[in-house]
Amino acid sequence: MTGGVQAVLLALVLLVQPPAAAVDSAALDRLTREVSQELRCPVCQGESIQESPAELAQEMKGVVREQLAAGRTPDEVKAYFVGRYGEWILLRPTTTGVNLMLYWLPPIVMIAGGAVVVLLARRWIRASRLATPTPSPTPDDA
């Protein structure tokens, strides 16, 4: 009984609330900003459409906003622009294929480097223990 009432209420709520209004204005602003920051302005030099004062960038921001307001997800909006401008438009490359190098190499270098540092430090500590069983109490002047 109550389950049925709830289902009806839910259906009513869904009916009353148009999908476009699901995204409120402040959230839409924030989302537009986030997506715009990741899209490169085609007429500028390396700036995002969020930052650029160029007219085309402003219009593109308008497109981003419209599509988000129409219920498209940020990924769909980005895909729209990739379809028109190519991957070049994305300021953060996709995490696929060769691009994975970008995301994986720095952590790998960090881990490998960290291992080297730790190994070296341990070897050097051992060397120092073997050479001087008791460390000198006076500070080093060098």
Partner: peptide, 11 residues
């Protein structure tokens, strides 16, 4: 890949 990609501030 012969494809131009951009690496910008978000990355």
């Amino acid at each position: 890949r012969g494809v131009k990609v951009s690496v910008g501030a978000p990355f």
